[in-house]
Amino acid sequence: MIKLIERIGRSTIAMTESLGRASLFLWMILVGLNTFVARVSDVTRQLFNTGVLSLPIIMVSGLFVGMVLALQGYNTLKDFGAEDALGVMVALSMVRELGPVVAALLFAGRAGSSLTAEIGLMKTTEQLSALEMMAVNPVHRVVMPRFVAAIVALPLLTLIFMSIGMLGAHLVGVVWLGVDAGAFWGQIERSVDWHEDILNGMLKSIAFAFAVAWIALYQGYESIPTSEGVGRSTTRTVVQASLWILGLDFVLTALMFN
């Protein structure tokens, strides 16, 4: 009994401690933002690593998600003779939910894990300590550009994901299954609201980017400096980021679309 209470107490203290460290870490990144101008070229390089290199997976997944949505939606809507509403169905689910969420999950797996592994390995090989020895703040020099790049990259990737998904839906719905193109796009234009749907989807995506970047970089920075530790941190990044994305998505949806 006492052991149980002890264990609860220990895990609470550990949780609070890591929350505090994560917040301090975020604070250091935000303070580091004032060196942003000097680090623009680093940010560009990281945009390449996190954004451009994620493009293939985002584009291919977007295409298939759009195509599958159209195929499934068509089979259901056909029973009600409402095939013309296919475009709206795909567009709304794409813009409000699937676009931001799936793109963020892929991003956490593709870019988040590599950020954690990279920073963790830098720590393991004592590159971060070496920077500190040279009086360079590793959070400002190494972490901040990656943080900024991730937050910029994910919303852009989400936009690309959504557009490609719509084209995929067009391919299946209009070209293959023969839904009228005018009805397909016309209904989309009428029912998808620029502000309500697309901007809110983008806001979601920015929130997800923030969560993924924070978790990935923190896990890398705090990883145990062994090969096993880095591996564990990388796993933790993907698991935690995915859970946070889905949890945040529920909260944001409840706030935005009510």
Partner: peptide, 23 residues
């Protein structure tokens, strides 16, 4: 390639605004 990436995203934004919403 970063420039290309950003341009592609902007093109997507225009596509979403003009074709997939009531903008």
């Amino acid at each position: 390639s970063v420039g290309f990436f950003v341009l592609l995203a902007i093109a997507s934004l225009f596509f979403m605004a003009l074709n997939v919403s009531n903008f």
